[in-house]
Simulated scan of single mutants.
Amino acid sequence: MLREDGVREVLARLQRGERIKAIARDLGVARNTVKRWQRLGGWRPRPSGHRPCQIDPYRPFVERRGPEVNWNGRVLHRELQTLGFAGTYQQVQRAIQPLRVDRAWAAVATVRFETTPGQQAQVDFGQTRLWIGDRLEVIHIFVFTLGYSRRLWASAYPHERLSALLDGHERAFQHFGGVPLECLYDNPRTLVLGRREGRVLWHPVWEDFARRYGFTPRACQPIGRRRRAKSKVA
């Protein structure tokens, strides 16, 4: 999903007569994404995916009472009915399912996974908002953290596109005076195009970049929010 500045760039390049395939490759997005914004003709915010439902007013009760009854849907449904809830048992089940999953992950013990010096770095983006002149701008922070020492390098960009990732890596390599054996990523769509038979499909420009600098890119397994870089489930 492109942000507003990315959509403006897409439309400007289309007006200059550039090919859809080239634009998609440079921005690290699918060609259908470029075609979609060409069809819409301008940026539009994504509508909220949440639809109001009967259980919404009772969610605080469910979140508080759920752990006390071990997330028993029948018990919660019966107690909610005494509070005026007129919905079905299935609605209660749908409401407690993500809460059950979150509590289960929170209960899993995690063990820190140590790496040797020079072996690995973890790379990610964060965001913050800053006033620049009279405008409140979203600033994207590239963060490159060494696995062994936890020393980090950070630099700011107006977006998280491929060009920012390439520049951020080069600046980090220069700052630390070297390149780790591998870099770990949390599956950014800019770099990870998908998976096939268990193998990560990297953006071809990114593969060339990693080969040129001599490091191996690795993507986290997309199996849950609690299992992130530098940790493994015990």
Rank of each mutant, 00 (worst) to 15 (best):
R100F: 06
S149T: 14
G42F: 05
L40P: 04
P57K: 11
Q97R: 15
R171K: 15
V29T: 02
C220V: 06
G133H: 11
P204C: 08
A164V: 05
D134I: 05
C53L: 10
P57R: 05
V192C: 09
Q90V: 05
Q15S: 10
D56F: 00
R44W: 03
K232C: 15
R228V: 08
T82A: 13
W202N: 08
V10H: 01
G147K: 07
E197K: 08
R227F: 14
Y89P: 05
A30P: 00
I55T: 05
R189F: 01
F142H: 03
K21V: 09
V123C: 03
L146I: 03
D26A: 13
W202K: 03
D56L: 01
A172I: 02
T145Q: 10
E18A: 01
Q97L: 15
T88S: 15
W206D: 00
P98C: 13
Q91L: 14
Q81P: 06
H175T: 15
R13P: 07
R228Y: 11
P98T: 10
R16E: 09
V69M: 15
R19Q: 11
V123T: 04
R103N: 10
V62Q: 03
V29I: 11
Y185D: 00
I139S: 07
A24L: 02
A107T: 09
P52Y: 09
E63R: 15
T128D: 09
V233T: 13
R135L: 06
W206M: 04
F125L: 08
V101E: 15
I55W: 06
L99E: 13
G224E: 12
F215C: 08
R100H: 12
A30D: 11
G17E: 04
R199D: 04
H203K: 02
R189N: 10
R19H: 12
A109M: 11
V123F: 02
F144V: 04
N70T: 04
R16F: 00
C220P: 06
I23Y: 01
T115V: 15
A164E: 03
L130F: 06
R100G: 09
L2V: 12
R36I: 07
A95M: 08
D186W: 01
R103C: 04
G126A: 08
H77V: 00
